[in-house]
Amino acid sequence: MRLAELSGRSGVPTATIKYYLRERLLPPGERVTTTTAEYSDAHLRRLRLVRALVQVGKMPVATAREVLAAVEDESLDHHMRLGAAVWALPHGPAPAEETPEAAAARRTADELLHRLGWRYGAEQGAASPAYGMLVNALAALARLGYPHTVEDVLPYGRIAGELAVADLDLVEEYETPAEQVEAAVALTVLLEPVLLSLRRLAETEESHRRFRGDA
């Protein structure tokens, strides 16, 4: 397909597509003449991913480029490629090394992963951005006097395990490894607002059941 058709099928203006091409967020098309190029369904998929990162995820172009580089790294096996792409997403600051809360939060996080049987996550430890997010969150709970023990957060870990199964079931519906990696990144960005909204709606329902009854 030519640029105009790619724009029409994706809903992305041609000027924006040209910008993505200049910024190396979208691979170049196959050159037909000196002024035109041919684009494929792979470009259409990549455009959807770029829009998820930049427009929905509000990701800076430089960060999006790093994520896409991980998506394209065919030197890794499928598991490592999925992990590298998701790790490249923004995860917030690393935990502070010097605070007692952070040290205690690391112990809690390690015990939590052990209780959940998440051996691979435990082996990654501090190298994992998601582990750093968990430590920061547990430290904030402790600092502000809210529940933060392993027993307090273990139910959330078990629910997260079920969510991971649902996530990868969706990813496996895509045919090729490249499509699966792209889908894993896009769904990580796009489904997190869905999870947050569903949690708040569920809390509204449960609050009504507990505290309002039939009133």
Results as ranks from 00 to 15, higher is better:
180 Q>K: 13
190 L>T: 09
157 G>C: 06
98 E>I: 00
184 A>N: 11
165 V>K: 08
140 A>S: 10
69 A>W: 10
172 E>M: 05
100 P>N: 08
29 G>K: 09
102 A>P: 08
213 G>C: 01
82 L>W: 08
127 A>F: 05
26 L>D: 05
210 R>A: 09
154 L>A: 12
29 G>H: 13
95 P>I: 01
65 R>L: 08
112 L>D: 04
134 L>C: 10
34 T>C: 04
90 P>F: 04
54 V>M: 03
196 L>R: 15
50 V>Y: 11
67 V>D: 06
68 L>S: 06
178 A>H: 03
172 E>P: 02
48 R>T: 13
18 K>S: 04
196 L>V: 13
186 A>H: 03
115 R>Q: 11
33 T>E: 07
74 E>M: 03
56 V>W: 02
58 K>I: 01
192 E>H: 02
183 A>V: 07
134 L>R: 10
37 A>G: 10
53 L>P: 11
99 T>L: 12
34 T>M: 13
117 G>I: 11
141 L>H: 10
115 R>T: 02
19 Y>K: 05
158 R>G: 04
31 R>M: 12
36 T>N: 03
14 T>F: 02
26 L>P: 06
145 G>L: 13
155 P>F: 12
108 T>H: 02
47 L>T: 04
101 E>F: 11
173 E>I: 03
180 Q>G: 03
144 L>T: 15
91 H>T: 11
66 E>D: 12
185 V>G: 04
136 N>F: 00
83 G>W: 09
86 V>I: 15
174 Y>P: 04
39 Y>C: 08
17 I>G: 07
180 Q>H: 02
157 G>P: 08
194 V>A: 12
16 T>G: 01
121 G>Q: 12
19 Y>M: 05
159 I>Q: 10
131 Y>W: 15
28 P>R: 15
38 E>P: 00
90 P>G: 07
57 G>F: 00
25 L>Q: 07
145 G>D: 12
145 G>K: 09
